[in-house]
Computed example of a mutant assay.
Amino acid sequence: MSLSSFRVEVSAGSVLFRQGDAPTSAFLLEQGEIEVTTRHGEESRRLGVLVAGDLLGEMAVIDDSPRTATATALTDCVLTPIDRTQFAERLDDADPVVRALLLSQLTRYRSALAQLSGQREPAPSAQVRDARAQDAAVALDKIRLESELREALERRELEVRLQPILEISTNRVAGFEALTRWTHPERGPVSPADFIKLAEETSLILPIGDYVLAEVCNALRRIGGDGDAAPFVALNVSGRQLDDPGLLDRFLAALVAGGVAPRRLKIEITESLVLDYERVSGIIARCHGAGMKVALDDFGTGYSNLGHLHKLEFDTLKMDQGFIRQMSDPRCYAIVRAIVGMAHSLDCDIVAEGVETELQLRQLRELGCRYAQGWLIGKPLPVPEALALL
C-alpha cells in the first residue's frame, strides 16, 4: 500500500483497514472496487462492494468508534484520505437537528451490524455519550420550538409592533419599522433572533412573511393619509423570501386589497444580501416599477461593497446602530459624517438606527441626517399605541 497525505494507492487483495482498528481517517474511493466485510465467529459476511465515488470508513470517524468492518481491495484502488477534523468541523457547524439525526442513524446501524456479526455493540465513551445527549436535547428543543411557532402562526399569536421613525428636521413621526414579536405561553418572550432565524431555516418564513404583510397593510389602512407626506411602514424581508418569485406579486395584491398605495410600503433588504448583486438589482427594479421604495438595512456592518453600491438604486440607507453608539469618538463621528454625505450624493434618504441620547440626535441633525430611529424616539409599540403618536 502506497500512502501519502493526499492519495492512497492499494493493490488488489490488500486490506485498507480491519475490523476493530482505530478510526484514523475516512476515504473517498477515486478508482477501483473495495469489498466491505464483517466477521461472525469464523464466518465472513459481505456487507457490500464500494466503487468510485463512494465514501468508506466515515462512520467510525464520525462517532470515534473502532472499525466495525474490514475493507479489502478487489482491484487496484486509488483513494483520497479524509481527516477526522474535516468531518468534525462540518458537524460542529451543522444544524443540530441534522447532526442528531445522523448520530441516531449511526447508532441504529451499529446496533444492527453488531447483531449481524454476533458481537456485542461497542459502548461509546462518556465524552461521546455526553455530546450525543447534548445534541439530542438541542435538536429536540429546536423541533419542538418550530412546531410551536407553526401553531402560534395558525392561532395568530405573533404580534406585529411598530417602531417609530422620526424625521429629524420637522420633529414628526414620518413612519415606522414593522417588527415581529412572539410571547410563548410557557417560555415567555422569545427573541426574534431565535424564532426568525428558525423560520428562515425552513419554508415557515414564507407564511410568517405573508402574515406580517397582512398586519402591516391593516396598520397602513388605519393610519390613512395620502400623498408623499403620508406615513410609511418599512418591512424587512429575508433572503429566503426574496428567493420566492411570487413575493412581490403577493405584496402588491395585499396592498391593492387593502387600498394602500405601494409607495407607503418600504422594503428593507439587509446588507449581507447585496453581495448577490444581480438578484438585488432585479428586485429593486421590480419594486420601483410597482411604486415601492427599497432601503438598504444595517449599512456598514461589514458587507459594504462600494463598487456596486452606486449601481444599486436604493432609496434609503439605514446606518447601523454601532456607528451611532460610538459617535463620541471623533473618528467614528467622521465616518458617520462621510456616510451621510455619501447618501446625499446618491440622492438617498438616510436613517440612523439605535439613537438613544439627545446628544446623538443633535449631532445627526447637524450632519443633515433625515431620519432617526431608536429608543430615544420610541420602542416597538403595539399598533394602537404607535398610531397614537401620529
Rank of each mutant, 00 (worst) to 15 (best):
L3C: 04
S5Y: 07
S5Q: 15
R7G: 03
S14T: 05
R18F: 09
Q19C: 02
D21F: 10
D21Q: 09
S25Q: 15
L28A: 10
I34Q: 11
V36K: 04
E42T: 14
E43V: 12
L47K: 10
L50F: 15
L50W: 12
A52F: 03
L55N: 02
G57M: 00
E58K: 04
D63H: 01
P66M: 06
T70P: 11
T70F: 10
C77P: 10
V78Y: 05
L79W: 03
T80H: 13
D83V: 08
T85H: 14
A88S: 13
A88L: 03
A88K: 06
P96H: 09
R99F: 03
Y109S: 10
A112D: 14
L113D: 00
Q115M: 12
Q119M: 11
R120N: 08
D130Y: 05
Q134W: 06
D135C: 12
A136G: 08
A137G: 11
V138Q: 15
R144M: 01
L145Y: 00
E146I: 00
R150A: 02
R150P: 00
E151L: 10
A152R: 02
E157P: 02
E157Y: 03
L158W: 10
V160W: 02
N171L: 01
H184G: 01
S191C: 08
P192R: 07
A193F: 06
D194R: 11
K197Q: 14
T202R: 06
P207R: 06
D210K: 09
L220T: 06
L220M: 08
G224H: 10
D226N: 12
G227V: 07
A229I: 04
V233W: 00
L242C: 13
D243P: 00
D244P: 04
G246H: 12
D249W: 06
L252I: 13
L255S: 05
R263K: 12
E271I: 13
L273H: 09
L273E: 09
R279G: 03
R286S: 12
G289Q: 15
G289L: 09
G291N: 07
L296Y: 10
D297T: 09
F299Y: 15
T301Q: 14
T301D: 13
H308D: 05
H308P: 01
K311M: 13
T316I: 15
D320R: 02
Q321Y: 06
F323K: 13
I324Q: 09
R331F: 03
I339A: 14
G341E: 11
L346V: 10
D349I: 01
I350L: 15
A352K: 01
E353C: 05
E353D: 11
E353M: 09
E356L: 11
E358H: 06
L359D: 14
E366M: 04
E366Q: 12
L367R: 01
G368R: 10
G368D: 09
C369L: 04
Q373T: 08
G374N: 05
W375C: 03
L376A: 00
I377H: 07
I377Q: 06
P382G: 05
E385C: 00
